[in-house]
């Protein structure tokens, strides 16, 4: 249950970005959230709604791209994609697995209203 502190950290970045790009309002925020990132997307959404009031992102929509958990077996090379945790390689049973994706917790992009539509 540390989603609120993740959102607080997100807003620090949003304010910096808004300033750097002379944004008047942030209208959309897109995150990549891995299945094994340790946060729950629904709780991130609640925290975002709570936090955005009175900020430059007051009217922003939060979009969450959920990334599945993917591992590569170091024994047989199989790549396995799941929504939940994988404990052993399905074909060979090896537990020597390398995490390929699913731990992301990334601010991918922001959509903003600005007087200065120049560079992006």
């Amino acid at each position: 249950m540390h989603e609120l502190s993740v959102i607080a950290s997100l807003f620090d970045t949003l304010l910096e970005q808004a300033k750097a790009h002379k944004a008047r309002a942030i209208t959309m925020v897109k995150l990549e959230v891995g299945a094994l990132s340790g946060v729950v997307p629904e709780l991130l959404e609640s925290a975002f709604e709570m936090y955005k009031a009175g900020t430059i992102a007051e009217k922003a929509k939060l979009v969450i791209d959920r990334r599945p958990f993917q591992v590569r077996c170091r024994t047989c090379g199989t790549v396995e994609t799941r929504e939940d945790f994988v404990f052993a390689c399905p074909p060979c049973g090896s537990t020597d697995l390398e995490i390929v994706s699913g731990t992301e917790l990334i601010l991918e992009k922001i959509e903003a209203e600005t007087d200065d539509p120049g560079d992006t």
Binding site: V6, S9, L10, T13, Q17, H21, A23, R24, A25, T27, L31, L105, I106, L107, E108, K109, I110, E111, A112, E113, T114, D115, P117, T120
Partner: peptide, 13 residues
């Protein structure tokens, strides 16, 4: 008001 996309790609933590 014009809108623009700002690509950030920054770890939230």
């Amino acid at each position: 008001m014009p809108k623009k996309d700002i690509l950030v790609l920054q770890d939230l933590l």
